[in-house]
């Protein structure tokens, strides 16, 4: 139950000074964390938005192609629509795997060090 959990203990950690933030911001470890996040998330975002827009544009301007029947009454339009669902699930899974493997350990290490004041 949500309310039975102990109160958060984070407030007791000290908040690093602006100088410490600036220092960590320039550190190789942080620069690598940021690169690892951005080089994954940014291209992937552009990719799925392009794939979605392609689907919207095909719906608009390629009616004949989208109406092609594949099996029974199931046509290309429906299949591509459902494919958007599938790619959404896959991308969510892929990003979460990347984040757990590549981002979380680095982020955690920096956070622990900064909050303990070392």
């Amino acid at each position: 139950m949500a309310t039975d959990a102990p109160p958060p203990s984070k407030e007791q950690h000290k908040l690093p000074s602006p100088e410490e933030f600036a220092e960590v911001h320039e550190s190789a470890e942080f620069v690598e964390l940021r690169r690892s996040y951005r080089s994954f998330a940014f291209p992937l975002t552009i990719g799925f938005i392009a794939w979605y827009l392609l689907y919207v544009l095909l719906s608009n301007y390629a009616g004949g192609f989208m109406g092609t029947k594949l099996f029974g009454n199931i046509n290309v339009a429906l299949l591509l629509g459902v494919a958007q669902f599938v790619t959404t699930f896959l991308i969510a899974w892929w990003y979460s795997r990347h984040a757990a493997a590549k981002l979380d350990p680095k982020a955690e290490a920096i956070k622990t060090r900064m909050e303990s004041g070392a």
């Binding site: 933030f21 940021r34 956070k111």
Partner: peptide, 18 residues
């Protein structure tokens, strides 16, 4: 620039999160 450095470190690492 200092505030941005702080925001970036906090947003990526969770340091000092409430």
């Amino acid at each position: 620039a200092k505030k941005y450095a702080e925001l970036e470190v906090r947003s990526l690492t969770g340091t000092g999160a409430h």
